[in-house]
Design a protein around this nucleic acid. Structure first.
Lengths: 279, 279
DNA sequence: TTGACAAATGACCGATTAGTCATTAGTATA
DNA sequence: TATACTAATGACTAATCGGTCATTTGTCAA
């Protein structure tokens, strides 16, 4: 659906300029060259629009990192360098959305929004930790969680440079600089603050499983969007399984693994695992 | 004026919970146990309230750092440790306001708000750079601006721990951990990314001098608030100098230096220097 | 008790918002 | 061409907002 993408693009520009609250649906529709009614044909509400933006951007970042770490075939320093470069390029390309995040950070809109951001944050943590393990091995077991926070801190602070200055920056130099810093901290740091226990404490108490209704709604939304045929088939099958309540866990598990491959389905895969109590 | 403080406290709690936009004046007055009209006796607008909050807390943080770096009498590692500890305690004590900042970050409200935040940010940069000079001397001239960004990054990332977890954290351990990290980066880092030139580019083009009207308004506000007698006298004298247009620069310079001692007057001292074109 | 003044109130205003829905325009089929 | 259907419209609503101001309340000295 091309209309949806048009709205998302134009809305993103406005959100980056003015913030979410300060941007009216009217402005979005004017900039998109459509009527107000047409907006509500694509999105049920203004909130649904920002959810879509977050899903789109975050799932892309997470799957980019995942791909690098799991299947990139890079080694040690090269991996770290490519990691930073990938993240930075992502920020550069989507600096508009990054601006929205900076501005709106956990803006108390909705419990689902908070859960989503928390979920993607955990995915990123998982991927970075995996990378740290690959690069440094067991030697930094005591400080790896602290290093995780430093890496995220580097990303956070330097990404501000993109957002507040629109200057063209030398990403390769920046990535090299961050690689050096990360290595220094990894190899010589002896006083960790963030421990495994603290990270576990920070993982908010899990919400209960989603209702059947919300799950089906999400799946239907995805079926309308997803391109890949076999993913769409798996989604249909999953919907049937939910409605039939058969609980064929092996089949469901396989289907979830299939849809999980598609970045767009990341969040719904998470909800499905919650719903069916998989691992 | 005690009413003003009551409003500021209650508003701060609400802003931290819901954000600035999402909090109505109605809610603030209800929580404060006053009427809507009474609110507008203390503040001319909702914007003026958030300006007051920012001025109040940012000037406190800046003067705390300034005091440490300029007159604390600490040396090297001890100075760095006290610096982190002071900042962290400030965040802990005012975690509500820190939350508001995280949420509202440059929320496009008003040109004056942006200028204020930028001004305080520059004050903090100045103080940190002075500290870096004291501790490391000329040896890190090439990487000091990069180190500045790392220090600010550490503060940023770990302060999130306060804000999103309400856990009691071991600030002394955290400060020690950050001292070690800072020293590592200062002593071994060789690939800087942030240079003096880049920092200068990031300093937004300065606004023109304030009008006589706005200046007098700010001074009057401060006269009503400031406790210290001699500061109040200096403010009165400054107001007279402005109205008389005498331009006795030496006298004015001295008066500005006097009021600058008071943390509350930091911003107006900045405006005065702009107005009278001092240094 | 009275009168004068300041402090405080809350009903009210115009502006703006997200969201709705009766209506129209456009398009494909018979 | 007539019919049936979807896509698209924008005037409209109900709610909420920041801010105002005629009115009431409280507090003094006389």
């Amino acid at each position: 659906m091309v209309k949806k993408q048009l709205i998302m693009e134009k809305a993103l520009e406005l959100f980056a300029e003015q913030g979410f609250d300060a941007t009216s649906v009217q402005q979005i529709t004017e900039k998109s060259g459509i009527s107000k009614g047409a907006f509500y044909l694509s999105f049920k509400s203004k909130d649904e629009l920002i959810f879509a933006l977050i899903d789109h951007f975050m799932s892309e970042i997470v799957s980019n990192i995942d791909y690098l770490v799991s299947g990139g075939g890079y080694q040690k320093d090269e991996l770290l360098y490519q990691f930073y470069l990938t993240i930075l390029k992502n920020f550069e390309e989507h600096s508009n959305l990054a601006t929205v995040f900076m501005k709106e950070q956990t803006h108390t809109l909705n419990m689902e929004l908070i859960m989503k951001l928390h979920f993607y944050d955990k995915q990123i943590n998982r991927a970075i930790l995996k990378m740290i393990d690959q690069i440094y091995g067991d030697s930094i077991a005591a400080t790896k969680f602290d290093l995780l926070y430093c890496v995220k801190g580097f990303m956070k602070m330097y990404s501000e440079l993109f957002i507040f200055s629109k200057l063209p920056l030398d990403l390769k130099l920046l990535a090299s600089s961050l690689v050096e810093k990360t290595n220094l901290l990894a190899k010589h740091s002896t006083v960790p603050f963030v421990t495994k226990e603290l990270v576990n404490l920070l993982d908010l108490p899990a919400e209960g499983p989603p209702t059947q209704e919300t799950l089906v709604k999400h799946i239907n939304d995805l079926i309308a969007e997803v391109q890949e045929g076999f993913v769409k088939d798996a989604l249909h099958e999953l919907k049937e399984q939910i409605n039939k309540q058969t609980l064929d866990i092996l089949l469901i598990n396989g289907l979830v693994e299939i849809v999980r491959q598609d970045a767009q389905c990341m969040w719904v895969a998470f909800l499905l695992r919650r719903y069916f109590k998989i691992s």
